[in-house]
Design a protein around this nucleic acid. Structure first.
Length: 200
DNA sequence: TCGCCGATTGTCT
DNA sequence: GACAATCGGCGAA
């Protein structure tokens, strides 16, 4: 399959719309030892200033969140415990939104994924969680701040997802975020077995 | 500097 | 179902 990076303007759409539009797209990482790619099957939107669960809540601007205040379509990687999580910066300049990619369906470079995920018991465990997929694709903090239309880490248009097959619900792992806990800003392809295990 | 905490995962009971 | 791993960001001192 011939694939080209999604154009920069693809990322200039409302964050919740983008979070849904990313479902079905391919996330690809090129490295010296090969390429690994997967189809995005689960995302979460983080809506900046008004979202208590977001790192940029209240407009908090630090060295880490700075990248979200810039142009959309850039990577925002974040280290969590021993893991690295991958986000797509959303929202126009000055609007610090981001979309977290929580799960992928393996597509290319499965041998590499198996090698990078030695603890996985089966294929679904390669990429069915935000920390797992970054490990499987080889995404690290080195990818922070790079434009997604011209970097070793990029996104290509994938298959069209029927809106009726997109489910939504509360986000995961943000139980200390007050009223934001219940915002239905998590989206996934209904029935896809690579969606992360639900905790709520 | 110091101390705390987290958008997670894997292991053990 | 509980908890350790393990480290950088963040806020306080």
């Amino acid at each position: 399959m011939l694939m080209e990076p999604l154009e920069k303007r693809f990322y200039s759409q409302p964050t919740l719309t983008l979070a849904k539009a990313l479902l079905g797209c391919f996330l690809i990482k090129d490295t010296p030892i090969g390429t690994a790619a997967g189809m995005i099957v689960e995302t979460e939107a983080y809506m900046g200033p008004d979202d208590r669960a977001a790192h940029s809540y209240g407009g908090r601007r630090t060295k880490r969140t700075e990248i979200m205040f810039g142009e959309p379509g850039v990577t925002y990687t974040y280290s969590m415990h021993t893991h690295c999580l991958f986000n797509v910066v959303s929202g126009e300049v000055g609007e610090p939104h981001a979309v977290l990619v929580r799960a992928l369906e393996p597509f290319e470079g499965k041998e590499l994924m198996a090698k990078r995920r030695p603890k996985a018991k089966n294929e679904t465990q390669w990429t069915n969680g935000p920390g797992k997929l970054t490990k499987a694709l080889g995404i690290t903090m080195d990818d922070y701040g790079h434009p997604l239309d011209k970097s070793p880490l990029w996104i290509a248009k994938g298959i069209d997802i029927d809106p009726n097959n997109i489910a939504s619900g509360a986000r995961i792992g943000i139980q200390n975020s007050g009223e934001a806990v219940d915002y239905p800003w998590r989206f996934w392809i209904y029935g896809n077995k690579f969606v992360s295990p639900k905790t709520r």
